[in-house]
Simulated scan of single mutants.
Amino acid sequence: MTKRTGIRDVAREAGVSISTVSKALNRPDGVNPQLVARVRLAADELGYVPLEAARQLRVRRSGLLGMTVINIANPFFAELMAGAEDAVAVAGLRVLVGNSDDDVTKERDHLELFERVQVEGALVTPFGDTGPWIDRLRARGIPVVLVDTMDDSGALPSVSLDDIAGGRMAAGHLIDIGRRRLAFLGAREEVRQVRERLQGAREAVAQHPEVTLDVTWCERTTARVGQQLGARIAALDAAERPDGIITTNDHMGCGVVHGLVSAGVRVPEDIAVIGYDDIEFASIAAVPLSSIRQPAREMGKRAGELLLRHIAGDLDGVTQVVFQPELVIRASTVG
């Protein structure tokens, strides 16, 4: 991919400071005419084109950044949002949050709203196919950073977690403690993060021919849905139940544990359960939940910082930041 010429490149070519380049291009009346001519010549030779969104940031046209999250009821996304707000507050910006609520139509509505109010930039945690709406934002000069996922085309900067490694870690832990009949309870398969967690779990299971992995998909991954699934699993004959369960978030995982225990199934003696995200409640639940930790607040902060750099035209190529997961072992798997 060709590197985009930035204001630093112009400053280097002209032999002046970045602030001088900015003044010469935007407020030339206050700069020596010879310096203005030198800067403009350097900009022309390098093919430098100022980002419209960067110009908007300087004049504070809206003072807003847009951010979509999949489900704000999940504390992981609330932490992600808080981290982004921490990062952009230093630039005097505020975050307009759109909660997709596991709904493709709502997600698209939020992205269209960001376009209408001319946000300075957008942080997008995709649920459905957001490609056409992201393209529209970028066509208007609005920079976009993906959060909690990566762009396969390599065209967009992103901040994500290695979810394949996370899924492999979750299944590997259950296998290591002797579980052989595993179940994966997840949201829709089209959500990339979920799909990659399942891929990692399958990779771990493939190393152990005696281990099986069954998959159950559901429309929502709330605590209530988890509770219903836990009760349904508890109603099965003991020989038909899984002895290890992976859920795609802690919200659901805590619900599964509640559903099992309420029906008289012991956790972890009968069924071990591991969640994903390591939200605060996981550690203080009645049966503390083992989980795959995502550093949500730090991920949100890095995404916000990346977006500010993108708006300022200070990104060298497309930056993709990938965090690594961490296994957190608690009573729901080890007793």
Rank of each mutant, 00 (worst) to 15 (best):
E190A: 10
T105F: 05
A122W: 06
E203W: 01
I284Y: 07
R266G: 00
A263F: 00
G255H: 14
D29R: 09
I175R: 02
R8W: 04
H208P: 00
A183T: 05
R330Y: 03
V205Q: 00
Q324P: 02
I271Y: 12
R140A: 13
G15H: 13
A187I: 03
V287Y: 02
D176N: 13
T221S: 14
D148L: 07
H173Y: 04
G304E: 01
G178N: 06
A331N: 12
E120A: 12
G154M: 12
L308K: 06
D214R: 14
P268K: 09
R116K: 14
G300D: 05
P132F: 10
I134D: 04
V256Q: 07
T149G: 08
A42C: 13
A187Q: 12
E13W: 01
A89S: 13
D176S: 15
L35G: 03
E107N: 06
E120N: 10
A263V: 01
R302H: 14
R27E: 07
R297N: 05
E189T: 06
F77C: 02
A282E: 01
N71I: 05
V49A: 09
S290C: 09
V211N: 04
A82Q: 14
E280S: 13
D214P: 00
P209T: 11
E112N: 14
S62T: 15
P50G: 13
K3I: 08
S153Q: 10
A11N: 03
Q34Y: 01
N32A: 12
V69D: 08
I142E: 01
V321Q: 08
K23Y: 08
K3P: 00
P75E: 00
P132H: 11
I311Y: 01
G264M: 07
D102S: 10
G6H: 03
L308F: 11
I279L: 04
V265Y: 10
A206S: 15
G178K: 07
E120Y: 03
G83C: 04
A231G: 15
R61C: 03
T319P: 01
G226L: 09
R58G: 15
H258P: 00
C254S: 04
D162I: 08
I233Y: 13
S160F: 06
D176L: 12
A82G: 06
V159L: 07
N99E: 10
R40A: 06
A206L: 01
E85C: 08
A139M: 06
L198G: 02
A78T: 14
R140Q: 13
G335Y: 00
A303Q: 09
